[in-house]
Each structure stands twice: as structure tokens, then as C-alpha cells.
């Protein structure tokens, strides 16, 4: 666990502080970036195992950061989780289409839940975990969008 590097791109001081602390307490190594530009640079630099990406960022919007990450071969394989304040379908869909692996709605979850999700993510990577009913619907959406992505990719080709 201690090897896992996470880049956290979040502009709110307090929120970023709390998430960082929680994650570090869970044993993750966290690099913090407070704006999009810095986030991109840090991710490119540190090549983390996960990027937690807020959308509303100064200097560069989260989507733009995501695009850039996915563009560059150095960073395109890094998994990204979008942190959004609103559970807007459009934002989520867009994010997932751009290449994010998952999304978390900050306002709906306690910080602990977020940490759990991250843990889950890494556990899933190594061992596929049974789905929980809570996340089912969301998972379905994710699957759907992944399908769409493939279709879109095929179309683009």
C-alpha cells in the first residue's frame, strides 16, 4: 500500500487537506495539486497509480487535464477518478467518455467513503470484488459508457 502513489487534484484547501490526510492515514502516498496545470504536471512527473481529479479547477478545467493525460503516452495509462460536486449525468458521462475510470460525488459521500472507494479500486485491480448493490446502478452506467466509448472509438477508426 505504501507504494501506491496518488495524485490529488483539488482546488479547495479544506477538502484537499481532509482527503489527503485520510488517504495518507490509509497508507497511500499523496501528491497534491491545487490547479489543473499543476495537476497535469505532477501527474506527468510522478506517474502515480491513480489520479483523483476535481473538475472545477483554476487554470485548466478537469476535463482538459484528463484529455491531456490521455493524450500523452506517458500518462494515458494512469487511471483517473473524477471528483465531482454534483452528480450531473452529463459531467459523469463526459468524464468517463474522456477516459476516466470512475467518478465520485463528493457532496453525497463522507470522506471515509471516498477513501473506501479508493481502497476498493486498488483491491479490484488485483482481485475482482463482488459488486455491492449500492454501486450497482452506477456501475451499470459506467459499463454502458465504456461500451459507448468502444463504439465511439470504432466509429472514429
Amino acid at each position: 500500500m505504501k507504494d501506491i502513489k496518488i495524485v490529488l487534484v483539488e482546488d479547495d484547501e479544506i477538502l484537499s487537506k481532509v482527503i489527503k490526510e485520510e488517504l495518507e492515514e490509509s497508507g497511500f502516498k499523496v501528491y497534491l495539486a491545487m490547479d489543473g496545470e499543476k495537476g497535469l504536471a505532477t501527474a506527468t512527473d510522478k506517474k502515480p497509480n491513480l489520479v483523483l481529479l476535481d473538475l472545477m479547477l483554476p487554470k485548466m478545467h478537469g476535463f482538459e487535464v484528463l484529455e491531456n493525460l490521455k493524450k500523452s503516452p506517458e500518462t494515458d495509462k494512469i487511471p483517473v477518478m473524477i471528483l465531482t460536486m454534483l452528480g450531473s449525468d452529463d459531467d459523469i458521462k463526459k468524464g468517463l467518455l474522456l477516459g476516466a475510470n470512475d467518478y465520485i460525488v463528493k457532496s453525497q459521500h463522507a470522506v471515509g467513503e471516498i477513501v473506501d472507494k479508493v481502497k476498493e479500486f486498488f483491491n479490484e485491480e488485483s482481485n475482482p470484488v463482488g459488486k455491492t448493490s449500492k454501486k450497482e446502478t452506477k456501475k451499470e452506467v459506467v459499463e454502458e459508457i465504456k461500451e459507448e466509448k468502444k463504439v465511439v472509438k470504432k466509429k472514429k477508426k
Binding site: D12, I14, L15, V18, I19, M85, K106, S107, A110, V111
Partner: peptide
């Protein structure tokens, strides 16, 4: 929401 979430967390 941002500050509210902050307070909560």
C-alpha cells in the same frame, strides 16, 4: 457545496 462538504468532512 464545497464549503459544506468541507465542514462535513
Amino acid at each position: 457545496r464545497t464549503p459544506l462538504t468541507g465542514i462535513r468532512w
